[in-house]
Amino acid sequence: MTSPLWEVFVRSRRGLAHTHVGSLRAPDAHMALRNARDVYTRRQEGTSIWVVPAAVVVASSPDEKDEFFDPAGDKPYRHPTFYEVPEGVEHL
């Protein structure tokens, strides 16, 4: 019998968001967290881990790609590239 699939998110350091790093199999959340620690943070990759049952992830369908993503293609004004950066502002 194969254990359920879990998606693993790791935060590499304080202040950054958790990033998806991969998936693994585990019988429950407790084990999933420990397996994630062993599989994905062996080389000091993280300070925090989330595990999420893969079954609860709702994904967009490749079939809907056109109506989902193409309409954004011709709207460059949504990018913040039309502002002048005031002098002296370094980290905008």
Binding site: S3, L24, N35, V39
Partner: peptide, 11 residues
């Protein structure tokens, strides 16, 4: 039984 346990044991 699963690769996750392989890694855990070898850790």
């Amino acid at each position: 039984p699963e690769i996750e346990q392989d890694v855990a044991m070898l850790n």
